[in-house]
């Protein structure tokens, strides 16, 4: 059996048998405690600066951000974005309570279809779980309310993100995830729209995934407005 073979070969190389109990215990404690290593200082700043860093990093990686005052303003922001980019007004939308609760009819023409994305969808809208200021990264875990295909199949990925969900480093986002969801089947960390430099080492956006990543940032965090 290959399992025994591989483990045996490793132990022979390390010149020992299976780990003694006390050492295994110490390793289990390390796993349970999952200590942080050095966390770069850049994201450990006051709230307004943290939000600003998140936005600056998203834009540096060719994403775009629109800030709105409350969730109720999301349909208008989505409508404005699609109109300005000359995009269709029907789109696939995550069955997330925040999004389902919005008055989409307030903006005539907008027609969300709730569910996962299909290969022909041009525009997809999902709910961002967390934002990581360190690199302008979105954390998008797969849950019944957040199908993974919405992050990938559209030409345009729209993501609604609450400012209260922006953290500094990745480690803070892992902590949120562990507390609230455990480890979902799939967790995507997304930094900007899809791209490739495979053709003559020159960057082109929109390789297989979205060509545009647009974040509607909801200012629900009073401490974040500087």
């Amino acid at each position: 059996m290959s399992r025994a073979e591989i483990l045996g070969a490793i132990r022979r190389g390390l010149r020992r048998g299976a780990l003694p109990d006390d050492q295994a215990m110490a390793l289990r404690a390390r796993l349970a405690g999952h200590p942080r290593h050095l966390v770069p200082a850049r994201s450990q700043v006051a709230r307004p600066a943290q939000i600003a860093l998140f936005i600056a990093n998203v834009e540096k990686e060719f994403g775009t951000v629109a800030r709105v005052a409350s969730l109720d303003d999301v349909p208008a922001a989505v409508g404005d974005y699609l109109a300005a980019a000359n995009l269709p007004t029907d789109f696939a939308m995550a069955p997330h309570p925040d999004l389902l609760g919005l008055n989409w009819a307030s903006r005539p023409m907008l027609t969300p279809r709730v569910g996962r994305a299909q290969g022909t969808d041009l525009v997809c809208l999902t709910q961002g779980y967390a934002g990581i200021a360190e690199t302008g990264t979105l954390m998008l875990p797969a849950t019944p309310e957040r199908p993974t295909t919405l992050n990938l199949l559209g030409d345009v990925a729209l993501v609604v993100l609450k400012a209260t969900r922006i953290v500094g480093p990745y480690e803070a986002a892992w902590d949120l995830l562990r507390q609230e969801l455990g480890m979902p089947r799939n967790v995507m960390l997304v930094t900007g729209p899809s791209r490739s430099a495979d053709i003559e080492s020159t960057l082109e956006l929109g390789a297989h995934g979205p060509r545009n990543l647009h974040i509607v940032l909801v200012d629900d965090d009073p401490t974040a407005i500087g």
Binding site: R185, N186, V187, P193, S194
Partner: peptide
């Protein structure tokens, strides 16, 4: 890059 565009963690089916 500071971070790649897609860094994805898969856990089970």
């Amino acid at each position: 890059q500071d971070f790649s565009v897609y860094t994805t963690f898969s856990t089970g089916a």
